[in-house]
Write a protein that binds this DNA or RNA. Structure first.
Length: 259
DNA sequence: ACCGCTGTTCTCCG
DNA sequence: TCGGAGAACAGCGG
């Protein structure tokens, strides 16, 4: 988290209330960021969601503001903390700190794979109750918090499960594989993007900016490329990654090894 | 220039 | 109830 006091907030009226506040806490549940500031000794909550195109960027004194900056916090050392969001699906709300626990959206979140781990027994019960295809179901934030369109495809690829399978048809063995694959995929993503962000920008990773033109994923946006796993394990021409649409979202899969 | 696509989520129908 | 479509928005690439 940026270490500094807010001396100005621009972009939203409620943020004026944060002038003089100091960032003191940072938490995450799924895709929700829960920031805490201290304002005259009282905690204030700042609830943020990145939507599709949102990101937080820290800029040094004198830097140009990034394109699509929607909210700017000026910190006491002249740094600018920007909430950047091209498509405006992101959200930022000032709420009483204690009210985080009462927000229906937050209360309804399923377990966060990183924060809470994945309870396979609970997951099995939920999956057994649904005839939905497993992939769109994984996007349901009340099932697991934080799994989005990329991780859903990646995890099913790793677990060798066809994204079109009805959730209730998954075996216990497959659910175990899936739970591990979700963790593995998230860990992989953090290692890769985190490392590249770190390497390309130095130590300070209190802002998140992905290097452009970089795709660390196994299947996401790789339609037409050979399946890397089958290429290693199967002789002959490897199958090609396919793209399909489920619930209006792209899914990527290997038609051979995902069953 | 048009069309389809994009890392999300909410609401409205049938 | 559930699932799918459409909406919110703005850009990019073929």
């Amino acid at each position: 988290m940026a270490d500094g006091r807010v001396v100005a907030g621009k972009g939203q009226r409620a943020l004026k209330a944060l002038v003089g506040a100091r960032f003191t806490g940072f938490d995450r549940r799924g895709k929700h960021l829960l920031l805490t500031l201290q304002q005259s000794g009282k905690p204030v909550g700042l609830w943020s969601h990145l939507g599709m195109s949102g990101k937080w960027l820290l800029r040094q004194p004198g830097d140009e503001p990034p394109r699509w900056s929607r909210v700017t916090f000026t910190l006491d050392r002249g740094q600018q903390l920007h909430f950047v969001d091209l498509r405006l699906f992101g959200r930022m709300r000032v709420v009483p700190r204690a009210a985080f626990a009462e927000q229906p959206v937050l209360v309804a979140l399923g377990p966060d794979p990183l924060h809470d781990g994945i309870d396979r027994a609970t997951l099995s019960k939920r999956l057994a109750r649904s005839s939905k295809p497993i992939k769109p179901l994984l996007l349901d934030q009340t099932l697991l918090a934080g799994v989005g369109n990329i991780q859903a495809s990646e995890a099913l690829y790793r677990a060798a499960i066809d994204p079109r399978r009805p959730a209730r048809d998954l075996t216990a063995r497959e659910i175990t594989r899936l739970a591990r694959a979700i963790r593995a995929s998230i860990d992989f993503t953090l290692r890769h993007l985190g490392k590249q962000i770190d390497d390309s920008r130095g130590r300070d990773i209190s802002y998140v900016e992905e290097p452009a033109g970089l795709n660390p994923f196994l299947v996401y946006e790789r339609a037409g490329e050979p399946c890397r796993r089958c290429r290693r394990q199967v002789s002959g021409a490897p199958p090609v990654i396919q793209r399909l649409v489920q619930a209006a979202r792209s899914t990527y899969l290997c038609p051979r090894h995902q069953r």
